[in-house]
Amino acid sequence: MSHLSLETLNHYLDNELDGAERAAAETHMATCGQCQRQLAALQELFLALETLPPAPLPRDMTAGVLARIAPPPAPARWTWRAWVALAVQLAAALILAFTLASPAVQSLFAVGNGVSFDGLLATFNGLWLRADSWLVSAQTVTSTWMNQATSVAPGPLAALAPLQWALLLAVTGLLWLVGTGLLLTPQRGTMNAER
């Protein structure tokens, strides 16, 4: 009887022989020292591989993986948008204020001064009272800026009429809302990405 092939020995240890093949292999090995030794040598390799201890992990990599899968929500982009919104707001308020403070516009208001402007003023004041906290914030921002502007150019700005102030605040509030919309855009984007 011929010896077991290398393939048969491998199949035997891999449990890839069917019942009859396995029985035949065992019958042969029971009386064949050479095949027994071949099988034992192969088995020794199996055992060596099975008992190879794991190498120690050199360092914990949890933080490294987390840093790559969950980057902080785009701070650079946020800052960029915030600064643009703020700049647009301040520039618009600045232009508006100086336009209203200019002698030409002052004279226009002076000419048209009367009942209609008082009515307008009342409407603006009503709106103002109903405005929410956003507009209050806008007022704070604008007042702060106006105080600075006043210190630079006290003459014309100090002479602003109440109506002009109301107009200035209303337009600034509007710009502020636009600016806020700009600021909220990346936040909405982030929330969508999470879903």
Binding site: P54, A55, L57, P58, D60, M61, T62, V65, L66, I69
Partner: peptide, 13 residues
């Protein structure tokens, strides 16, 4: 996911 990393990093390494 960090916890999964913690559990499997040794084996995977």
């Amino acid at each position: 996911y960090g916890e999964l990393v913690r559990r499997y990093q040794g084996e995977l390494y």
